[in-house]
Every structure is written in structure tokens, then in C-alpha cells.
Amino acid sequence: MNDTPADQVRLPRETKGKRPRFFDDPAIDQMMTFMLELTTEVAVLRERMDTVERLLDERGSVTRAAIEAYQPSATVEAERNAWREAYLKRIYRMHPPV
């Protein structure tokens, strides 16, 4: 039995098992991880900005608590999904195969 208190559990972030390499240079595999995480963080920032703008439109003021409590409607979520899709398309612009 594990006696760590539930409020002190830190879940493992690394996977047990050999990590595959897809590129000749493992640094590129590592760079892909950095890039995808960065792609995600930019989207997080952009969504926070979007929430701020929407709150300002609706109420004329904004607080951190209001950002945290903001629940997007289905329409807002659909707009955000369209943005996410287009955003990824802009970033992952693959060169034609040669």
C-alpha cells in the first residue's frame, strides 16, 4: 500500500519504455517536442487574450477571477475550434515531397 497522502501525489510525467527515434539526428526528435509544446503554449496565450477581449466586449472590465470563471458558449467554442484548425494549418506547412 502506498502511504503518500492524496494531496501530495505527484503523477509520473515520463513514460516507461524505449522512446522511438524518427529522425537521423535525435536532436530533431527533441526539437519536435519543443516545437509542439510551444505551438500549444501560443494557442493557450491566444485563447486567454480571446477571453479577455470577449469579457471586455460584454462587461467593459476584466479580472483574473472573471477569466478563470469564463465558460465559452457553444458558438464561442466553435469559433475557437475554427481558429485552432486554421492556426495549425498555417504552422504545419509541409514542403512538397521530393
Partner: peptide
């Protein structure tokens, strides 16, 4: 999840779709 965690989860769903639908097709 916090506001930013939800945003992160939402974006990751699209990255997953990019791979399993779009890049798989390419």
C-alpha cells in the same frame, strides 16, 4: 482544469487530429 489548462487540452486535441487525420492522409 484552469482556463489555461482547458485551452491547452483543446489545442492538443487538434494536434492529435492533425496527425491521425491530416498527416496520415498526406
Amino acid at each position: 482544469p484552469t482556463h489555461d489548462e482547458r485551452a491547452r487540452q483543446g489545442m492538443v486535441s487538434f494536434i492529435r487530429k492533425l496527425a491521425i487525420i491530416d498527416m496520415r492522409r498526406s
